[in-house]
Simulated scan of single mutants.
Amino acid sequence: MPPALFLHGLDSSMRGTKAQWFRHHFPEVRMRDYEGDLDQRLAQLEDQVAGLDRLILVGSSFGGLMAACFAIRHPERCRRLILLAPALNFNGYQPPPIPLTVPTILVMGEHDTVCPPDLVLPQARATFNNLEVRIEDDDHMLHRTFPVLDWQALLT
């Protein structure tokens, strides 16, 4: 299994719902608590993945923004991104000049008011040219959708 990492949201941690779910169902998924602003969190991620390639990054909300920014910097090190309601509408995010070829799955809730699909989708489509989009009957937390995704397939 390629190295898989879970990147939690801005106000979350390794004690959050999704992190606990991964710890219970897929304990091999690596995670840590990220702190600070986007640049500080990206520096923590860089340290965490030093020497690793073929990464599968699962990013939730602000963690999705982190995953996208990491992939822009290091597309050759990314096997796949799974972006869960990514915060591509925050922090003045700018897509790269040339869309990335990293396979990316975007899962969003149609009722998301934090990272609304109408704001995030254009950013995602400008960032990734190998993008699968899933809009679900859910909200920002994706509590209904998250546990029923085919994680076995997504993490291999």
Rank of each mutant, 00 (worst) to 15 (best):
S13R: 01
H24V: 02
P3E: 04
P116Q: 03
G63L: 12
D118Q: 15
D139R: 13
I105E: 14
P122Y: 00
I105Y: 10
Q94L: 12
V49Q: 09
R73F: 05
M31I: 01
F26L: 03
G9T: 13
T113W: 04
N130S: 15
I56K: 05
D47G: 01
G63D: 14
C69S: 05
H143A: 15
D39K: 01
E76Q: 13
Q44S: 00
I56T: 12
Y34P: 02
N89L: 14
H8S: 00
V49C: 12
L57Q: 05
M141Q: 05
R23A: 15
G16K: 03
L42P: 05
E46I: 08
R30W: 00
H24G: 02
L100K: 05
F90Q: 14
T145R: 01
V107G: 11
P3N: 07
L38C: 09
F146E: 07
I105F: 00
S12D: 04
L57C: 06
R15P: 07
P27Q: 03
V133E: 00
P96F: 08
G59H: 05
L52N: 06
P3D: 08
L7Y: 10
E46M: 10
K18Y: 12
D112A: 08
Y93T: 06
F70K: 12
V107C: 12
G64W: 03
H74P: 01
P147C: 05
Q94P: 10
I98L: 10
P117V: 01
P2Q: 06
P27N: 08
F6G: 04
P122F: 01
F62S: 11
Q20M: 14
R15L: 11
H8Y: 00
D37S: 06
R30L: 01
V120W: 13
F22C: 15
V114W: 12
R23G: 15
D53E: 15
V29D: 12
G92T: 09
N91E: 13
P95A: 07
L42W: 01
F22I: 12
C115L: 14
L5W: 08
E35Q: 01
L106R: 01
T17M: 10
Q44N: 00
L38T: 12
D138Q: 10
T17Y: 08
D33M: 10
S61V: 03
P3C: 07
G59F: 04
D53Q: 14
P27R: 11
A87G: 15
P27D: 13
F90H: 15
L42M: 06
F70A: 10
L65I: 04
